[in-house]
Amino acid sequence: MSALTDPLSRWRARSVRRAVAAIAAALLLLILVLGDLTTGPSGMGLGEIWHTLMAGPQGADRAAAAIMFQIRLPQTSMALIVGAALGLAGLLMQTILANPLASPFTLGFSAAAGFGAALAIMFGSALALPLPPHFLTPACAFLATLAATGIVWLVGRLKGTQPEVLVLAGIAVMFFFQSLLSLLQFLASPEVLQQIVFWLFGSLLKANWTAVQVSGAILLLCLPVIARDVWALTALRLGEANAESLGLDVAAVRRRAFLTTAALTAAAVSFTGTIGFVGLIAPHVARSLVGEDHRIALPVSALAGAMIIVSASIVGKLLSSGAAIPVGIITAVAGIPMLLAVILRHEGG
């Protein structure tokens, strides 16, 4: 066993173990995706799923093709995109703010999205815009998120990008948009209020191919920006003072990561509504599995986020087969014990 007593071999063996863990996570996600595709009010077995997928959207079995390509596939794709986006955004936030409690929602982006959506639901029909409502609501949610980003950005420009400044600005933005949202809810008629509340739940039922394409495109555009900074982000884990003295422009890295997070969060929540806790837990799962090297922690955090949402989707459909329970509710309820388990297993954070 001399190979294992040598520190460098131990280090290599650990790198291999981490790669294996990432591959295992990807395989588990694949199994969950198949599970998600087979669950639903009209039961379909794995064989049937395979035939329907192979036959394509124009397949002979019209009912099966419609269920697969109009309902299940867009929902599962959306679950993957939202989970990956929130997982990535969560790890970026926790790293640049050096805070294990940070999440994509820390800077108030989701509250802003909720306000934008409520605004569209309440006044969209009165404006008589040429846009259909199922597109106007996400567009407004997206714009409101950008507004929130702008406010936090401006504060960061004026006062510097220290974590405390950004967190305080984010909390201020969050309360501001939450109050505006409460005001809208107070003013809304009961029917409109119901629609707003339903939007806020965070549900994959709103998924369609347009949503998948827009969110997927934003996620893809963010990947190269994140990939460029992987080592800079890892260096930040050693502390800001150290990273800075090694010639890293910490403020620039923070600003890039913060804009990426805004784009990812907006992409995730604009179409589906608020899905809590994923962005908080996925990074903890990733760090406890593969450590803090962001080359592997970022992809694993994305995988973990996707796994959580796909699992929530399966559970939501199993618990109530008629109208699936929104994933936002399931992730929030299941998230708390998961978070506690992670904290207890890994007290370092």
């Binding site: 280090w11 992987v230 050693l238 003072a241 090694l246 760090r287 090297d293």
Partner: peptide, 28 residues
Amino acid sequence: YLPQAFAVKSSISVLECILLGRREDLGL
């Protein structure tokens, strides 16, 4: 330049910490 003593709370390994000294030369 080594800033005044500060505690590192990260679980990054010693070897990775050394490698981070040449962050610019590290690829994927």
